[in-house]
Design a protein around this nucleic acid. Structure first.
Lengths: 198, 198
DNA sequence: GGCTGTCATAAACAATCATTTGTTTTATTG
DNA sequence: CAATAAAACAAATGATTGTTTATGACAGCC
């Protein structure tokens, strides 16, 4: 046996470090995680990490940027599909929940730890986040134009309400839950699109 | 003039420290804030803080517990009012947004920094958070029983969708915004209760 | 079988962390 | 003005922070 992948499916030392950092940053936060924490999770001494990565911040940059890209890649295609705005928005919500469920800890890093990026990388992350919000705004705008959505909704607040509900999911979603990510996404899409009223 | 309250309305050294800690914990996180940060915000040397507070964690405990209590106190009365479930839920949502808007940074501490509480105080904080969620569940249950809410909503997921949207508001709400907290709360209540569909 | 590059160790670096101590300044009050 | 209390200073504590360095083990390859 040449390679012994861990439960975390890390196929090399660098991936093992990235994986440990992702989980620890998600659980304890960036500033609440020390390089010694990461090293001991990987099973190596602290100094050994630097043979594979440049710095603690480089870890954060890679996790945040890669994480945002997953959301953009999962949701983007639905924005430009030829479905109706309702169907688009529903598909985007479900896709978002599936990405969160795939790795809630990485999602927590994407949603919260980007604040600790340095001045060199934070602006790019903020721009991608805004692009993401803008994609939802576009679809809502489209739905209002077509008459499928109520004309009196405040587009920005409606989208932030939806994204807020979605971005809170890593707080409570669990792989051991009885509902699949797709089911949760569908239920949330129902709640958000049609409300709770009878 | 005996007392010179700052912009932050701190009427004593202890309040000034609590206030600085609240803002810094909210903005930079508990682990991302040093006692030196707090001291320099207050305009004092680090060691001087300990004449007024017991420890860094004591600050966190007081901010989190006091913060949760505000939400409970604002929402509680609506739960037991004799209004209809729809009106109750609407009032609870608006009250929640108003508490967030009153101090978004304290809200961020309540929503995120409770993780860093020690074993002695974390369980109590978790219990209060669950009580808060349970209050919303109760009202939704009541609405389903009375037929005002759809019978096919998953109560837990519906409530977490609502609370997620609400707990995300400190990320974007701003005192400089053109809409009042009450207006934002009303718009969000509309979105969450009746959805976006025409 | 020696060579090359990868990777880990062991040990240390300066900086910063929360906190404690003894002393001095500042303000209040009689 | 003198006495007292409140609050800040100045300096140091040991622990922990991210990171660097020098050294050695162990592969695969010609």
């Amino acid at each position: 046996m040449a390679i012994a992948p861990t439960v975390e499916a890390a196929i090399g030392p660098r991936d093992a470090i990235m994986d440990a950092a992702m989980h620890l940053f998600g659980k304890q936060g960036y500033t609440g995680t020390s390089m010694r924490d990461i090293a001991s999770a990987v099973g190596v001494l602290p100094g050994s990490l630097y043979a594979h990565i440049a710095s603690k911040e480089a870890l954060l940059i890679e996790i945040v940027d890669g994480g945002i890209n997953r959301f953009l890649a999962a949701v983007g295609p639905h924005v430009v599909s030829d479905a109706s705005p309702v169907e688009k928005l529903r598909a985007m919500i479900i896709a978002h929940v599936e990405i969160v469920a795939d790795n809630p800890e990485r999602s927590q890093v994407v949603f919260h730890q980007w604040r600790y990026l340095g001045d060199a990388s934070k602006p790019a992350a903020i721009k991608k986040r805004r692009d993401y919000e803008e994609a939802f705004i576009e679809v809502v705008e489209e739905g209002i134009q077509s008459g499928e959505f109520r004309a009196d909704v405040n587009r920005r607040i409606a989208v932030r309400t939806i994204l807020g509900a979605l971005n809170w999911t890593p707080e409570w979603i669990s792989p051991e839950g009885s509902l699949s990510p797709a089911s949760i996404g569908t239920l949330m899409a129902d709640s958000l699109l049609t409300g709770v009223l009878a």
